[in-house]
Nucleic acid binder design. Structure first.
Lengths: 126, 126
DNA sequence: ATATCATGTCGATTCCAGTCTACATGATGG
DNA sequence: CCATCATGTAGACTGGAATCGACATGATAT
């Protein structure tokens, strides 16, 4: 039940995987794993991947999603209004809004002592 | 610098927030915080909120997003192919695919020993 | 100028999600 | 029916994210 050396050229955490892929696809074991890895690398390395990941990650927190949906309904909110809606501390609200701005989901407008936030593109919300 | 009792009816972590909102909106302090909390509650409590949150959370992991984007390109992948692409253990792949299925992003098809996955609605990807 | 106000930043804490190993399950083939 | 295979499940570990209190910053008004 040992693995032939030629199959171990590409290191994977699961030494049985090349055999499974070989049985599934019919390709020779040493070839199939790199094939999938290369395709994955192309996707992972693309700038769109990083961008999309940053967007969905910014929306993946309940309080940030709430803020975004409220902005969708109300158009504009200042930081303290987001704080009132979420019930969080102002420090945490500041943290969340910074992430949303960085991800390009929300724009920031400083007027006087207040900071107002708006959705950048409400059509792109998932 | 003490807070009037009538302002403390609704508990917020930040005792200064009602005053800030009063100055911002002109409404009386005791009224404005509940206003925002009620709007937030309506959004938070809606079934769409839970659904959207589940979707974005399912997509917010780099390996799951990779799997989804590969499915978008290739149409169909079996579990071990996802494992080859991500470089994860098969246990972790199983965990990720279960989340994607639960969130309604991916469909599962059992054929023989293998489980094949497809995108449910590729137009809804953010 | 100085006090007050709204918000940003830092450090520490807590908690959850991703990950693996080891074992279990369900299907297939001899 | 038993061995093998692909995958699911349980438990433990760990890194990172969310959160808050405390202090810092920039704007406003007195």
């Amino acid at each position: 039940m040992s693995i032939p050396v030629y199959m171990m050229a590409i290191t994977t955490p699961d030494p049985m995987l090349p055999r499974r892929l070989e049985r599934l696809t019919g390709n020779e074991a040493p070839n199939c794993v790199p094939l999938y890895l290369d395709r994955a690398k192309a996707v992972r390395g693309s700038p769109e991947f990083a961008e999309r990941l940053q967007r969905v990650r910014a929306l993946s927190d309940p309080n940030r999603l709430l803020a975004v949906l409220l902005l969708e309904r109300q158009g504009e909110l200042c930081a303290c209004e987001v704080q009132a809606a979420t019930g969080l501390s102002h420090a945490t609200v500041s943290h969340h809004m910074k992430l949303l701005v960085k991800a390009g989901i929300v724009s920031e407008d400083r007027r006087g002592k207040w900071r107002y936030y708006r959705l950048r593109d409400r059509s792109r919300l998932p």
